[in-house]
Amino acid sequence: MYDFAYHKPSSVADAVAARSGAEDGTFVAGGMTLVPTLKQRLAQPSDLVDLGGIGELHGITVSGDTVTIGAMTTHGAVAKSAEVQSAIPALAALAGGIGDPQVRNRGTIGGSVANNDPAADYPAACMALGATIKTDKREVPADEFFTGLFETALDEGEMIVSVSFPKPEKAAYQKFINPASRYALVGVFVAKTGGGVKVAVTGAGQDGVFRVPEMESALSSNLSADAIADVAVDADTLNSDIHASAEYRSHLITVMAKRAVAALS
């Protein structure tokens, strides 16, 4: 790992200032992706701004029908949260299925969402539940936030403060894991709200997470696994790699989506 200047601010304002004052700085949340990336010398930031000392970024609040999760809240904390378990059980279950217990004790929702790994779980939940990503400057709907592989709508130096999820009527997440990494080979999040049904897929798209309008409209008129049994995502739009071909991923999307619909609660 190349060396860097290290900063540990105690407020959002100080973090943003430290980041903007750096030549080529980066924020570090839990570091579950960034630290391995630095070790492999795939990144060489001049400055690391550690968000671990900012109290206001931690915690979960439920207000009315909205669950708001601070950016530095760990996957373990979301999984164990009685509030999340009761308001959006599918979200608590998703958090409890990320990585392994030690990764969940360190990895954060803000880090995962900002990184937008094409195989990460949270982006699918954000898209299907219609989450809002709050930054130090603005609020961005999930549909406009995830813009490509490891790409988001975040500007240079902009940081996530929290993610708000409206409570759905029903939701479920099903993932087919890569047995080595536990990342999603394909993960499908299905959510039913007053506004209809949303289906978001992670792990498979060439541009990262995406929604499946054909499944959404089929499920909006008939919320059953049978309704999407014949709906397949075109393999030409999906990833092929050593773990799975695009055709296999296409097959898995329909299977995982059907399982998610059957598991809706």
Partner: peptide, 11 residues
Amino acid sequence: SMKSCTLLAVQ
């Protein structure tokens, strides 16, 4: 419990 190979000492 955490993986100390993926944590900076300063963290």
